[in-house]
Amino acid sequence: MLMFKTQSEMETKEIAIKLAEMLHPGDVITLDGDLGAGKTTFTKGLAEGLEIKRTVNSPTYTIIKEYEGRIPLYHMDVYRLEGSEEDIGFDEYFEGEGVTVVEWSLFIESYLPVNRLMISIEKVDEQQRSITINPKGDRYEQISKELKE
């Protein structure tokens, strides 16, 4: 487990950019945090690190948005799948050619791969955030280690 304290939106984004540089196709990240904690900011950082040119915005309505970059990014918000057993082809994303970021992942717990990078962002005050990175599996342990340096 790895923890960062960031003092600004910019710092939160920088961690995401650094993380993006280590990502490979097929990587899965779960991203949790309250409204306004900075999940979108973090995802924008990942997108920047993956050299995605388009604006990354909320996927809440369509559940999934796909972006082209150095590696494609699949951005999911599965909030609306609460209490539903619907499998919208998750495996095709998790095992696909891109990096998948899942917000509100608890609602699709049974579909998530065992190995994944679990990130949670907590709001300490208006500016300060506490970012916890919890790796599951060797590959993500390695990423976590590199991120620490």
Binding site: L35, T40, T55, N57, S58, T60, Y61
Partner: peptide, 14 residues
């Protein structure tokens, strides 16, 4: 131009 985060209707719903 497009939204950088939530759509207008989404903000309404929330």
């Amino acid at each position: 131009g497009e939204t950088r985060d939530d759509a207008a209707g989404e903000a309404y719903d929330k």
